[in-house]
Design a protein around this nucleic acid. Structure first.
Lengths: 220, 220, 220, 220
DNA sequence: CGATAAACGAGACGGTACGTCCCGTCTTTGC
DNA sequence: GCAAAGACGGGACGTACCGTCTCGTTTATCG
């Protein structure tokens, strides 16, 4: 039953789309970005490596960066699904909550450090971030689809902590999150210093002091 | 063919360099990046706009990004010189030290916010940062020539504060700096939230709490 | 899979063919060639204009030129049928034979001039002729199906004239035909000079002199 | 001293043109047309075979057919120069004039037959003629640069013959030329019959009868 | 002060990739 | 089971820039 309402002139029919090609394009795009870098990755190269016509790429994506974004989201989705399997599965992808806020944050930030240092992720993540810095639209989608959901997990965990009295009233959890994540990102993006577990621990320590209730600090 | 002793063919004679062309190239590069964005700024476009032969660009710079970096450093240098004129001039570009650490940091961070929001700086800064994220070598030069000297000013101010007992012993000033600057950069680069004075103030508050001496907090 | 007795997969069943589509394809092909020229007429364009799937064209024709050839033969057939209605119909499409060879040939050549100048025919005739010049196979079909039958009419008329003593013995009627038709075609194809009735008359005069019996010329 | 008047915006500087590339392009174009035919000759193919950038072709010619036209004119020029060397040289490329008109024309038409049957010329000549049939502008240039000069030689020879009383007064030499050349072209382009010396001789015989003075025929 | 050599403006060159148009094939859906 | 629709792998289009390479033309020391 063809939907008569939708589908403007130049809009292809998504139901006929080749899954095979989509996968091949994702794989080729990620491989090329990793191997030769973003600037030297070309649509033509992706098409040729994926064994696909160029038009098949241009039919579904407007630009190289858009392809890479989807390829990356797909990769992140897979990685998340795998990680999920290691947990009990029921309560989805929340941050751990053992009651020990500092320990929980250290674990998560250390994991983030590891991921950022993982060569499998490094090239595409850098490429997309850089592209998003310059191309507002791509950046917005990147943030919306990937970054914000992740930050929201921190916000949730910190909100819980505040309700448990571990965080000072009046602290904006959003700002608190950025106090942790901002420096990490800064170091990684700008390569000013190596990104280590020790750095993650230090950040957690300073940030938690910064947002702790006054008496909590006193009692420590 | 008499071989002169010095200066191989590939090394142009910098003393004969046309200052006029250099300036025109900087201006054209910055203007184009601002007007059409980094990706659509081309060496050919810069040359044509500057009324300069392409070879004159390739003679002195290896790539588009290198031109832009120099153009940007030139711009930053001018801006710094102007800002300098407002100060007493003798003790160069140190951070203010009124004794009130929080107030000093708020002032500096607010100024940074203003600069990042200045459309005159935004496009080239984003362009160079993004390029540096992906191109390690350019990034390194960008950091070395521009970012590190600035961060060092913070480090100096915080070191002074620590000696004055306003910062907890054992706190790494470098990490403390990143606690302030990292979140700011994060917000600006990724455009997750608007960059305001209020945000700068909040960061200073939380960060200072985080690195304050225990008793200082207690006594507050 | 039950193999039906006749019609291999590659041979579609012509009895089920859609007459409606065939007509629409002919019309679209001729219209496009006339409007945008042969080179910019595409199979996709014909299909879309005819409201027909591309495969419907490829099912029945091997190439763009083959479609156009059939479309043209169809058009020529219609034109011939119309012209026929003006005659007594019984003796089909022979050249007129009033006994005055020169007058008969003038009439026919003038009619040919008019047809070649008819914008309805010009574009497709040029397109097919040009294609046939380069593509031997298409050219052969074009000649066999269209040109040769027409030239044969001239041959017949001239043979009759020779038997009536109006043409010198030993003259090859085929060559004589080309003496008339060749120059006409030459002028039309190569656009060296305008194609007029006067030119047709002149050709008839010279050619008839050329093939006349010696005494006939003497007696004239 | 740069000429300030000439050279509109997008007009390249012809004085800097690479003769090497021009030659390579001509050779590649002619070779490809001969080897794979006009339709399957591509600008990309010519460029690649000539070891030349595509832009170098598009800088100097607007289309594939224009390239081929120039390549062909070059070839024809060379061939003419070679042929010239065989003659006494002084009186350029006029048709022979031995006083025997029929013999002279037979010689020339036979040479034309040989050239049209020469595989070295066949493919490009067909290609250009066909293209000119469809593309009026190219056709006009082809006729002007190549065909008309040749036909003019015939016109000159026939005019001389008329003055010598070998051609009837009142005969238009131009039409007379087409009486000879038209049928030849017709047979060659449309491949209706093989193109032979005998055919050339027959054409000369009939055509000369057609344009002979009345008494001349009588006296023959 | 005039010679000379380097930097300059200009832009042609061999290339690579762009994003688009069609090719001819294949697959899905509906009549 | 043909037909409309159109996605697919592929090839070529004509354009934009790349970075290199001559060209004359300034320009600015040096002999």
């Amino acid at each position: 039953m063809p939907e008569p309402q939708a589908a403007s002139p130049r809009t292809p029919d998504a139901t006929r789309r080749s899954e095979r090609s989509r996968r091949a394009i994702y794989d080729a795009a990620l491989a090329l970005v990793t191997e030769v870098g973003y600037a030297r990755t070309t649509v033509e190269g992706i098409a040729s490596r994926a064994g696909v016509g160029k038009q098949t790429i241009y039919r579904w994506w407007p630009s190289k960066s858009a392809v890479l974004l989807d390829a990356y989201l797909d990769l992140a989705g897979q990685a998340a699904a795998e990680a999920q399997d290691g947990q009990d599965g029921a309560e989805a992808a929340g941050l751990p909550d053992t009651g020990d806020l500092a320990a929980d944050l250290r674990a998560v930030l250390r994991a983030t450090v590891d991921e950022l240092n993982d060569p499998r992720f490094e090239a595409p993540t850098r490429a997309l971030t850089a592209e998003g810095v310059v191309d507002g639209e791509l950046g917005a989608r990147f943030v919306e689809r990937l970054l914000e959901p992740q930050l929201q997990l921190y916000v949730d965990r910190l909100t819980a902590a505040r309700e448990a009295g571990q965080v000072r009233d009046g602290v904006d959890p959003r700002v608190a999150v950025e106090l942790l994540v901002g420096p990490l990102t800064h170091r990684w993006l700008l390569r000013t210093r190596p990104l280590t577990h020790a750095y993650a621990d230090e950040l957690v320590e300073y940030a938690l002091h910064g947002i702790a209730p006054r008496q909590a600090v006193e009692g420590a």
